[in-house]
């Protein structure tokens, strides 16, 4: 329950962080809120030799209205997302999903950038960002690039981030009247999701014009329920139950002490139905 010793560097700017990453190579890890990294270091499941603390980069903590989308600084904490008026009004899914992460003390430390970069499929925010078609701005020694959420998550705890790259910003579209929902299923409020489902549903003339569904903990990365999304496109709200029956298609959930793969698939279907129904009611 005590981490192995490491060297500690404080990044004074994003460029400084990139420089430090270049200097220390793959043994270095970025430290944001630390609520994914420090627990595994304490269990000695991770032992980076250098931690580069981004905690002083207060200029990476913001939510900005940029016309058709909102820009969120990577060091914005989950509690800040939860409370942010602009997010609540323009993209309630992010504010609400953030409020379900961990517990209040965790959310006082944990950041959106940390959640995304850690790339944990059981984490709530990534699947919500997936359902939102968010884009991520990353910067490295080769400059800045933008990655779509759908391209960002590669495998179990693996993202497209290069060893010297820093995630700096998350952009989410304004929902402009689209319905949304996040259904987190867990046994205790403080736990990771057994399964979570994020839904963004657009309506026109009483039917569903499009639906995007993000799945938490249904595989090695956060996933989209593409079959259900196709079935929902153009569907009548009365057929949601049928359309979401395919919400687990293409997923590969694990079996563990919380749930069997079969049960997770079942939950994905039930929660997708409930999420889409709730989104339609918003």
């Amino acid at each position: 329950m005590i981490p192995l010793a490491f060297d500690y560097e404080v990044a004074e700017s994003v460029d400084h962080a990139i420089e430090l990453l270049g200097q220390h190579g793959e043994e270095a890890k970025l430290l944001a809120g630390g609520h994914s990294l420090l627990p595994i270091m304490k269990l000695r499941l991770a032992a980076p030799t250098v931690l580069i603390d981004l905690g002083r980069l207060s200029d990476l903590s913001y939510v900005r209205d940029e016309g058709d989308h909102l820009a969120i600084g990577a060091m914005t904490r989950q509690c800040d997302l939860e409370r942010d008026q602009t997010l609540q009004e323009q993209c309630g899914l992010v504010a609400y999903t953030a409020s379900l992460v961990g517990d209040p003390s965790v959310r006082h430390r944990g950041t959106i950038g940390g959640s995304v970069s850690h790339g944990d499929a059981a984490s709530d925010l990534p699947s919500a960002l997936l359902a939102l078609d968010a884009t991520f701005t990353v910067r490295g020694s080769n400059g800045e690039r933008t990655v779509a959420a759908g391209d960002f998550f590669q495998d179990y705890l693996q993202t497209v981030l290069e060893p010297d790259e820093v995630l700096t910003e998350i952009r989410v579209p304004k929902l402009n009247g689209a319905g949304w929902s996040y259904k987190k299923f867990n046994r205790r409020a403080q736990d990771w999701a057994v399964v979570g489902v994020a839904a963004v549903v657009e309506r026109s003339n009483g039917s569903i014009s499009s639906a995007r569904i993000g799945l938490t903990n249904m595989g090695s990365t956060p996933l989209r329920a593409t079959a259900a999304e196709s079935a929902l496109a153009g569907a009548d709200p009365s057929s949601v139950a049928e359309a979401t029956g395919s919400a687990d298609e293409g997923t590969s959930p694990s079996s563990d002490i919380a749930a069997s793969a079969e049960y997770r698939r079942h939950l994905a279907r039930v929660l997708s139905r409930r999420a889409v129904e709730e989104a339609l009611s918003r």
Partner: peptide, 10 residues
């Protein structure tokens, strides 16, 4: 068929 039984797993 509910699939895997947890009783076996534990």
């Amino acid at each position: 068929d509910p699939g895997t039984r947890d009783a076996d797993r534990s």
